[in-house]
């Protein structure tokens, strides 16, 4: 579903991605690991359509379409979901209003009528349960005053609401306590089908015990320097990244 070829990207004239190649097929889980500052979040931001980053070379195709030509909102409507490493607080925008707007924008794109109020409430209730998010949180402004872990759960809640085809989870595990990690991983697994796929960015092999990857990639200085199976994560956990250089 996703083909990334020789992708280069920069911000403020600084080159960050320096030739990424990656193919993701339906049903697969890809883990991306790598040192701090290697460009993992940059890759996810570029895939989600953040205009702050400039693509200077390369191409990305998503179901055959030129992804880089699409607006951020259309990428979302086409099924790409980014779980942010640092979710943004938006004071004054209520979670309910935010989610209702998002769901309806997705529906409009598919030619559907806005969701009925009662269906929406039920959807919210079901998905809150699925990801184990405190139901009070959705009565507040988007992420405002949420704890680190609550913000991460909120990302997975939004993912559950929007049912993406390609989920990109940027360090969704950091900040979660052990129980929350299991609940969130469970949520992700429940949403998993043979038709969708996930790119899971993490520093810890622990998450990969729950969300088992088909491939593990190591990103370093803007390039994928190694790809292996799930055992590569264990090896990295043990040896760190230095031996790869």
């Amino acid at each position: 579903m996703l083909q990334i070829k020789n992708l280069h990207a920069s911000i403020d004239g600084k080159d960050i991605l320096k030739g990424i190649n990656l193919t993701v097929n339906a049903g697969e889980v890809h883990a991306i690991m790598g040192p701090n500052g290697s460009g993992k979040s940059t890759l996810s931001a570029v895939l989600a359509g953040n205009e702050a980053f400039k693509v200077t070379e390369g191409e990305v195709h998503y179901f055959g379409k030129d992804l880089l030509e699409m607006s951020a909102e259309n990428r979302s409507r086409e099924g790409i979901f980014l779980s942010f490493q640092y979710p943004i607080e938006i004071p004054g925008v209520s979670m309910v209003n935010f989610m209702k707007t998002a769901v309806n924008e997705h529906r409009k794109y598919k030619g559907l009528d806005p969701i009925a109020a009662s269906d929406f409430l039920k959807l919210m209730r079901d998905k809150k349960e699925l990801v184990g998010i405190d139901s009070q949180l959705t009565n507040r402004s988007v992420n405002e005053g949420f704890s680190g872990g609550e913000k991460k759960k909120n990302e997975i809640f939004q993912m559950a609401m929007l049912e993406p085809i390609l989920a990109i989870l940027d360090e969704t595990d950091s900040g979660l306590d052990i129980d929350a990690l299991r609940v969130v991983a469970n949520g992700v697994n429940k949403l998993k089908t043979k038709d969708n796929a996930a790119i899971v960015i993490t520093h810890y092999q622990r998450l990969l015990d729950y969300i088992v990857p088909d491939f593990v990639h190591v990103l370093s200085q803007g390039k994928i320097i190694k790809t292996g199976g799930k055992e590569l994560a264990l090896e990295l956990e043990e040896k760190g990244y230095d031996w790869l250089k």
Binding site: A48, G49, I90, V93, T101, A102, L162
Partner: peptide, 19 residues
């Protein structure tokens, strides 16, 4: 915040309105 809203499928103008 604008990118966050758009990344959830909300049209740029609509995101601006929400903000």
């Amino acid at each position: 915040a604008m990118f966050y809203l758009r990344a959830r499928g909300i049209e740029k103008n609509e995101a601006r309105m929400l903000m």
